[in-house]
């Protein structure tokens, strides 16, 4: 039994030192540190949006057409609305805070589905191998070749036609999460599979097999822990991609409805007023979105360089 229990422990301590190594390296890299701080700030804002927002977005007074299209405070001197108001008189800062929260929620939930599907399929494919593996990886290749955005646009468009516009808006968030979640599982599956392939040749797995440990237990207890750091590496970038995809879909009218705006929906509704001079309605959410995606991409790149250089890229 000794043989069986040592490797995970080793793996554990190795992971701790690797984490420390990452933290030390991060201190030396100002750009990465900066990105991490901003990302942490975004997460905090998303979590605390209802507390931080100057106005309660759910109250009936929040939408007041008398205040519509007010410019930011430094232009009007009106200190009630720091970043101005949108076309329905909503305080832009409050709307952006909630939009950030919504965008991040959709991104994180979609990626959770990706991880769940990808890890499951990747473990099975990698550990069992053979025909099952060949089949699953072909499916993964084919699905990837159609590109997530394309699949999402088509599926959502079809559902919108099927349900009708009004009913679709009720389900928009759920649909977005499911579609973005299901469409990108191959990314995680491939990475996990590559990891399992490398690990399953090692002696302790053989030892476990000979001792009659069940397949499920080998996969979950011995193989799964080894896939953690490659998963972490793609995680941030995947969340960023999901958020961008959500924004694009909302822009096309296939995403979040205007009364429950994510950042993408905010930007797209603001575009209509860009040309009439109300630039702030689209510019502030755009900057918020771009900065968030930018720091996440920086972090993802940085993690890839420092955690493991050989993540299979789609």
């Amino acid at each position: 039994m000794n043989v069986l229990h040592r490797p995970p422990v080793e793996g554990g301590s190795e992971r701790v030192t690797r984490l420390r190594h990452v933290l030390v390296a991060m201190r030396g890299d100002k750009l990465a540190l900066f990105a991490l701080l901003i990302f942490a700030f975004y997460c905090l804002v998303a979590l605390l949006a209802p507390l931080l927002a100057p106005y309660d977005v759910n109250s009936t007074e929040f939408m007041n057409l008398e205040n519509a299209e007010l410019a930011p405070a430094w232009q009007t001197g009106d200190t009630r609305f720091l970043l101005g108001t949108d076309t329905q008189g909503r305080d832009l800062l409050s709307v952006i805070l909630h939009g950030t929260r919504l965008s991040l929620t959709i991104g994180v939930c979609a990626v959770l589905i990706q991880v769940f599907l990808g890890v499951g399929i990747g473990l099975l494919s990698g550990y069992i191998g053979g025909r099952l593996d060949a089949f699953l990886m072909r499916v993964a290749d084919i699905q990837l070749s159609f590109s997530t955005m394309m699949v999402a646009i088509v599926v959502l468009a079809v559902f919108q036609t099927l349900f009708g516009h009004a009913a679709y808006q009720q389900l928009a968030m759920l649909m977005l999460i499911i579609v973005l979640g299901v469409a990108e599982w191959p990314i995680f599956a491939r990475t996990v599979r590559a990891c399992v392939f490398a690990e399953k040749e090692k002696e302790y797995i053989d030892a476990a097999r000979i001792l009659g440990v069940s397949k499920a237990r080998i996969m979950l207890r011995h193989l799964l822990p080894n896939t953690v750091s490659p998963i972490l590496v793609i995680l941030t970038i995947q969340i960023a991609n999901a958020i961008v995809a959500e924004a694009a879909l909302s822009f096309l009218g296939l995403g979040m409805p205007p009364n429950q705006p994510s950042l993408g929906a905010l930007i797209s509704s603001g575009f209509n007023y860009l040309f009439s001079g109300a630039w702030w309605i689209s510019v502030f959410p755009s900057v918020t979105l771009i900065l968030m995606i930018f720091v996440m991409n920086l972090l993802g790149d940085w993690l890839r360089d420092h955690l493991n250089p050989q993540v299979t890229r789609g």
Binding site: A248, F251, L289, I293, M296, D301
Partner: peptide, 11 residues
């Protein structure tokens, strides 16, 4: 290029 990657095409 990382920045370019972060700007959605519609923006």
């Amino acid at each position: 290029s990382t920045l370019g990657l972060s700007v959605p095409i519609f923006i």
